[in-house]
Design a binder for these strands. Structure first.
Length: 710
DNA sequence: AGCCAGCATG
């Protein structure tokens, strides 16, 4: 990994450098001046002019000056800073008489070019030599090399050496040492150095705190920060960036605001890093208004701060606003980067806006960010969430680098689309590719097993494979097992599993079981569990719905009335069913029983026409599920007003006969619409894809990819 | 003449 460098200002230095070259006044000062100049050029990384100067030095030098150590060191430093490592190395090798600076200049070059192991090799060479003793510069570099390469052993050897030699009392060395222990996951070592050796600065503290955060010890990090209040006036930008990051991870808005207040009182200036961290903190803590206000008041924005705000909108569910910010950003001439595109794609996915996602994809192809893994990952997720699983797979196959997120996205994409077999195939490929599955992977794998009814395989993954690869099963995995067992009809086993597994089960897990009872028509067990769930959470709307459906299926109207009364008393309202679909660039929104669409009468006519066509194929309106207190014919009418029926009908009216129709629905699809959609796909010979609150349904030729279980 | 930290995506 490269260490960031200060920004270069090539243009400015080009202006005055030739002048300086000409005005090198007398031969006597020609030794000192080129060195100053070379340092300046190294600082600004002006390779072009430096090369010219180097050539001049060679042609104009006296023989005695060629071997001059100072000049060679400056040249090594210059080429190392310009990332011309082979040249620096060549100069180093050519020197007959090196001093310690020659070594440190070259080692710095290696370190900043990601060649930390070369640094450690040079160190070995240096200490085994006779005439030179490594100094504090050498160890600051060497320890930093141990940090980036994770070489704790070498780091500890350096520690021993600097202790014996007394070099450890140099602040740079001490800080490098603390940083080494922090980065190598040895926070105790870092704390020990911090606390036992005299002299600390804010740098040491920042390193330890960041080390703790990297290890996930957030509370401990906060404790160390607490110790730092005594030196609060020493806090710098890094401290605040770290602290805001911590508040964001803890989702502690109160603390975040306190820290923000502290920062305003201190004389630390808010640079782009701090301001991005503040925007991010407010976003992650759910206070989008503060994120926006702060962003607007901060003049020096860059891509990062824009992206942080976009992400803040995205994380809080304001997908349109995130996408709108993209346009604002373009107006301000800020170029998006790979992170911006990832957030935009995720926002697009949040809206299931396939067409917009396609447009973004085209932009990304042109932008040059398409081979960034985070962009590829976001594309896979976008296509999958927008209902185009084939598109998702196409991106997946075209990716050059795949990380665990990539694999997880593809596996869970297939799984959500009910394509369990494909999901498990990708999982096998993942293992074959040597990528370790993680917590998220197994959620997707287990739910794929559930779709396929692979009980034995699922239990094998939970009990054997997860242990083998060292992933501790959590609530989500156990919930998948509940789904797996109950989906296979093993309802009692599922309940026993829940009673015997020592996990803190949540409402989602219990509702999974209720849902399974509903599908498998085991209303006795289903009602018992459902009653239990609504005791646990009196506001779980989904369970009330399932419970009253089960009473209705049993024609137990007293039960239905009881549930409805309960819901009224507890002021629980069913979320109205909303479905929408994209036709060209417009989203058409349909609300159940809502007649506001301008083409409502034609749409209604189309629904009637479709229902008439599918009745001969066996469609029977599920009037038992209608909870309105009305006559049967009217119940049938209510069913025909369901939002997904309206949306499907509209799609059929407005798109060419070969196009597939993609509908998105906010809540679970109802049984009646599900069986109607299956038959509609048959009579119209269309592919209809419906994304409901839980998953995707691919209706084709009279069947659904969920195999009637959802 | 040379040396040690930090932010945004999933």
């Amino acid at each position: 990994m490269l260490t960031p460098r200060p920004p270069t200002n090539t243009r400015a230095s080009l202006k005055y450098v030739p002048l300086l070259l000409k005005t090198s006044p007398t031969p006597s000062s020609s030794l000192a001046d080129p060195i100053k100049l070379l340092n300046k050029l190294a600082e600004t990384r002006n390779l072009k002019v430096g090369k010219v100067l180097h050539a001049q030095l060679i042609t104009s030098s006296h023989a005695s000056e060629i071997g001059d150590v100072f000049r060679s060191n400056s040249l090594i430093n210059f080429y190392a800073k310009c990332d011309e490592i082979p040249v620096a190395r060549h100069l180093f090798d050519q020197m007959s008489d090196r001093n310690i600076v020659s070594w440190s200049a070259l080692m710095t070059g290696y370190l900043h070019n990601g060649l930390a192991l070369e640094v450690l090799g040079l160190l070995k060479e240096l200490v085994s030599g006779e005439n030179l003793r490594p100094n504090e510069y050498i160890f600051a570099i060497a320890l930093s090399s141990c940090s980036v390469s994770g070489r704790v052993e070498e780091g500890k050897q350096c520690h021993g050496y600097v202790l014996k030699s007394g070099l450890v009392f140099h602040q740079y060395v001490k800080n490098a040492l603390i940083h080494m222990y922090s980065r190598c996951m040895d926070v105790e070592g870092a704390m020990w150095v911090l606390n036992t050796l005299p002299g600390y600065d804010i740098f040491s503290y920042n390193s330890v705190v960041n080390g703790l955060i990297d290890l996930g010890y957030l509370r401990e990090a906060l404790e160390v920060l607490g110790c730092m209040v005594t030196i609060r006036n020493a806090w710098d930008n890094v401290t605040f960036v770290t602290l805001f990051g911590l508040c964001a991870r803890l989702k502690d808005l109160k603390l975040g605001m306190q820290v923000h207040g502290q920062m305003l009182k201190s004389d630390v200036e808010s640079d782009v890093f701090v301001s991005s961290a503040i925007v991010d903190m407010y976003g992650k803590c759910g206070n989008i208004a503060n994120a926006r206000t702060f962003f607007c008041g901060f003049p020096n924005r860059n891509v990062v701060s824009w992206t942080a705000l976009m992400a803040a909108y995205f994380q809080n569910g304001y997908f349109e606003e995130a996408l709108h910010l993209f346009m604002e950003m373009e107006v301000h001439d800020v170029m998006p980067n790979e992170y911006s595109f990832a957030v935009l794609l995720n926002s697009s996915a949040g809206l299931s806006a396939l067409r917009l996602g396609d447009l973004l994809h085209a932009r990304i192809e042109k932008s040059g960010f398409k081979d960034h893994t985070i962009v590829g990952n976001a594309l896979v997720i976008m296509y999958s969430k927008s209902g185009n699983i084939i598109g998702a797979n196409k991106v997946f196959l075209g990716m050059i680098f795949r990380d665990s997120v990539t694999w997880n996205a593809m596996i869970s994409g297939y799984s959500h689309h009910g394509l369990g077999k494909e999901a498990l195939n990708v999982f096998q490929d993942m293992l074959a590719a040597g990528v370790s599955p993680n917590y998220v992977t197994f959620i997707a794998v287990l739910s794929a097993c559930a779709h396929l009814g692979l009980v034995q395989e699922g239990l094998y993954y939970l009990n054997q494979l997860m242990k083998q690869v060292g992933v501790e099963p959590g609530l989500e995995h156990y919930t998948c097992i509940v789904g797996l067992l109950s989906r296979a009809g093993l309802l009692d086993e599922a309940e026993n599993f829940m009673r015997s597994t020592p996990v803190k089960w949540d409402v989602i897990a219990w509702r999974t079981l209720v849902n399974a009872c509903h599908v498998h028509r085991n209303y006795g067990l289903g009602k018992r569990i459902a009653e239990f769930v609504i005791q646990m959470d009196p506001h779980d709307v989904g369970t009330y719905t399932l419970l009253s459906n089960m009473y209705a299926k049993e024609r137990r109207w007293d039960g239905v009335v009881k549930i409805r009364k309960l819901m009224r008393e507890r002021n629980i309202k069913k979320e109205p069913g909303v479905s929408w679909l994209e036709i060209r660039n417009t989203a058409h929104v349909f609300v159940s029983e809502d007649k506001k669409h301008p083409e409502y009468s034609q749409i209604h006519e189309k629904v009637q026409e479709l229902l008439a066509k599918i009745k001969p194929l066996g469609y029977v309106p599920d009037i038992a599920s209608v909870l309105h207190d009305v006559e049967d014919e009217q119940k049938e009418a209510y069913l025909s007003y369901h939002s997904e029926k309206l949306a499907i009908a509209y799609g059929l009216m407005k798109t060419p006969s070969e196009a597939s129709i993609r509908v998105i629905k906010n809540i679970r699809m109802c049984d009646d619409c599900h069986s109607a959609a299956k038959l509609i796909s048959k009579v119209t010979n269309r592919v209809i894809i419906v994304r409901d609150a839980n998953r995707f349904h691919h209706f084709q030729d009279g069947g659904c990819s969920c195999a009637d279980y959802w």
